[in-house]
Design a protein around this nucleic acid. Structure first.
Lengths: 151, 151
DNA sequence: TATGCATGTAATCAAGATTAATACATCAAA
DNA sequence: TTTGATGTATTAATCTTGATTACATGCATA
């Protein structure tokens, strides 16, 4: 299995908010159009991003989304955790019923837990080094390049 | 979503082969008993571990499994890759239909791919530093400690 | 060589998770 | 008060996993 697409969707959503601000209404429907998913899926992600203070959401006529932090203060790890990319925060799914009557079965969990945590931590710390500012800068550079090539 | 439990199951299987050798028949049924899963699940993992040369499997009366490499030559990354822990080797599931009509939609994949690969690589390299020898050593130490406490 | 036992593998089924889609309540602004 | 957007529950469809059954295949031994 893989890490939920909610993660890449959430990054896409936030990038839209940063890049498209002022060019089009930033509501769940237009953003869903860019991402290629259902507007309800986007609204559910709004809720999760709002819950950890990454965005603010306004209801009602001309409602929509706005960033609540500087792009350079939002890391990929923040986004990853906000949208529950993996169940219960555990990257690895440990098999549930090792047999306690077997010496290996009753010790394997304890032996592996520390190592799995180390691996997960290594990955998460790498995510913490990357910010949305980087992603948005690269995206805008590509868009500028497109405009240039179009003449 | 999480990484398939096939990974921790495979580590458990290999640890059984190393620790229980000589103490009980190393066939899919006894090992399945320790892991707490169906014997067919264990046999399917046998097949994957065999395909990459980590074990040899013998059919027929007193058949069973044996390690094909030294424990110190089998890393957690080897096991992880052998059992297809994540789909197509991709840790992240990228949403499938970003809209090419949107400047963000048509560039986000390219912008994120490199970063996702870096994160995945960081994690895999960490797994490559850990060997089954470490896991087996720790497991046997815990077993010895149990025996000591039992008097 | 015949028999028994274990692997190899296909097929089926149930359980759980994901996503899409519908519907409607809630709320803000004009 | 009307309009338009979010908040959220619910249902259905799709997918993946894992358990289970069944049986063919192959090796060892009597």
């Amino acid at each position: 299995m893989q890490i939920s697409s909610r993660f890449t969707i959430a990054v896409h959503v936030l990038t839209c908010v940063a890049v498209l601000d002022g060019q089009m209404p930033l509501n769940s429907e237009t953003i869903a159009g860019s991402v290629g998913v259902n507007p309800v899926a986007v609204r559910n992600i709004f809720r999760q991003l709002k819950a950890v203070g990454l965005i603010t959401v306004q209801r009602g006529g001309n409602g929509g989304v706005a960033l609540a932090r500087k792009l350079s203060d939002i890391t990929l790890l923040d986004v990853y955790r906000a949208v529950d990319s993996v169940e219960s925060g555990q990257l690895f799914h440990f098999h549930e019923n090792p047999n306690a009557a077997c010496p290996v079965g009753r010790n394997i969990h304890h032996v592996m837990d520390g190592r799995l945590a180390e691996i997960q931590d290594e990955m998460e710390q790498k995510m913490a080094t990357m910010t949305l500012a980087d992603v948005v800068t690269d995206t805008e550079a590509l868009i500028a390049k497109e405009a240039q090539q179009a003449g």
